[in-house]
Design a protein around this nucleic acid. Structure first.
Lengths: 209, 209
DNA sequence: GGTTGTAGACCAACCAGTCGGTTTGTAAAG
DNA sequence: CTTTACAAACCGACTGGTTGGTCTACAACC
């Protein structure tokens, strides 16, 4: 099925988290009422506050779960690639593909959970940091292997994450480009150029234009 | 109505907008109560709703004002530069400098007004679009003048805006780098590389005080 | 009978927006 | 110069609706 977990009637806690993604994606964090979340999850207030001490805590748990899953999947998707640059390039494509399949996750993770006070914002940062650390790791490896020249990989990683974020956010708000993954080649070229790699020299596997 | 030269923004409407920036920067949009805004502005509910039909409308006006001012200042700061690439490079530096001087504006404009429902999000997009159109315009000119090769300038502009956004957002949340404008040289190099320009070949004119 | 999990009525706090009333500027009328 | 008239600007108590969180009851299982 298109739905991530196949099983619908899992335990209550997970149903609450699933419903929360939907409601937060649609209404934003503040306007996402506990009432609507439990209605969609098919459970009750008592149940909600049995599993989570507060709405905020629930949101933290949601954030944690989503980001951990995402990072894990990116790592899995990328580990077959031969070189660091191949891995980052594959990572970009994977992220675009994943977010375009999980619109609501993207909406929540990239847009709707920011700007609601320090408490949440602070927890929000680590995700992007994990992602950019992943990128930085590969870039450092690329430097070590002589694939690219020495540079501030930390900054470059931030730039890449920001670029991805921007492209995905525009897609969320305007629907363009359609499909999202259509920008992948150009985006990959631009980002590779930004670390001094000629995109024409770097042709991943089969493609050659 | 023309504002007399050198007069402080002391009429009620402006005081409300100024106070709104502060409160929204501190608490986020939803948690920013009309009560606190009018308290800080030294006015009253009646006054607030005399000047604005609703909190949301006030926020739109605020957004509009801030983004128009920003764009205008960027254009002014940049128009003395000799070539398109000099202008975009100067623009990057100017934006970093400006936001580091106006932390609260950055917080509101880049972080705290997103994810509060379609109505605001939709209005939020044009700002980034104006910025990236500005960049796209210069990049197109650079292509026309043969400064850079032909490429998807629209995407590149988005990438640049995203990169700036990410760098500034991290500074807002973590305080690093300190000072923010310290990244300007490296960031400029990275972004110039992303359009195929060797940063070493591009020596910007020395800046005046 | 204690633990875990669910149910839903209830509550106190909060908050955007309203409304009747007051002040202030100003311009015509006396 | 004063009075009258009127509207723009401002004030703040109040309201109606919403919401996060609590509490008691209950059911299933050890």
């Amino acid at each position: 099925m298109a739905t991530p977990s196949g099983v619908e009637a899992s335990n209550t806690r997970d149903r609450i988290l699933d419903a929360a993604v939907e409601v937060i994606a649609e209404r934003g964090y503040s306007a996402a009422g506990v009432q609507e979340i439990i209605d969609r999850a098919g459970t009750s207030k008592g149940s909600f506050y049995f599993h989570f001490p507060s709405k905020e805590t629930m949101t933290m748990a949601l954030l944690e779960q989503m980001s951990n899953r995402l990072i894990k999947r990116v790592q899995e998707a990328v580990q077959g690639e031969p070189t660091p640059l191949h891995r980052v390039a594959a990572g970009i494509e994977f992220l675009l593909a994943t977010f375009s399949r999980h619109r609501k996750v993207a909406q929540v993770l990239l847009v709707n959970l920011m700007g609601h006070g320090r408490t949440i914002d602070r927890r929000f940062l680590p995700i992007r940091e994990k992602l950019s650390e992943l990128i930085k790791g590969e870039l450092d490896a690329a430097v070590a292997q002589g694939q690219i020249e020495c540079q501030d990989t930390s900054l470059v990683a931030a730039v890449w994450v920001g670029a991805l974020h921007e492209v995905i956010m525009r897609w969320l708000l305007t629907g363009q480009p359609s499909p999202l993954s259509g920008v992948a080649p150009e985006l990959r070229s631009t980002l590779l150029r930004s670390v001094g790699v000629d995109p024409a020299m770097f042709q991943p596997l089969q493609r050659r234009a």
